[in-house]
């Protein structure tokens, strides 16, 4: 939780500085997944981010969607299935499936 508090704190600071901010949160996982439900990533409109929602395999895509969410204000649910083969190729031993909710901080 201290981890989550730090991420939310950074989100609040960015917001206080007038930046657009979005939060990505792990909602559900299936199979082996490195982060548990509730794990968070905060992104600002310049693409800076803190926290993590996977072992690093889906962060790039999540940050892109989060920046879209900052622009259009629409919440979205992202589903990622990571096969063991893909996981091996990107050098991550994750595998499994993960659903991530992305929302703009209003």
């Amino acid at each position: 939780m201290s981890d989550t508090a730090e991420i939310l704190d950074q989100a609040a600071r960015w917001r206080a500085d007038g930046k657009g901010v979005a939060l990505a949160t792990v909602v559900k996982t299936w199979g082996s997944s490195p982060r548990q439900p509730g794990a968070k990533l905060a992104v600002n409109d310049s693409g800076e981010f803190v926290g993590s929602v996977s072992g690093g395999c889906v962060e790039g895509a999540v940050i892109g969607e989060a920046q879209e969410a900052i622009k259009d204000g629409k919440p979205r649910l992202l589903d990622f299935g990571i096969s063991d083969d893909q996981a091996w190729e990107v050098g991550l031993a994750c595998g499994g499936k993960v659903a991530i909710f992305v929302e703009r901080v209003e």
Binding site: M1, T4, A5, T25, P37, G38, F101
Partner: peptide
Amino acid sequence: GRTSTIETAGGMVMIEAFAPAR
């Protein structure tokens, strides 16, 4: 302090728990 999801008439709802620092 457990985070979970439930199904409702409006679809999936995430119930997120924020426990104080240990």
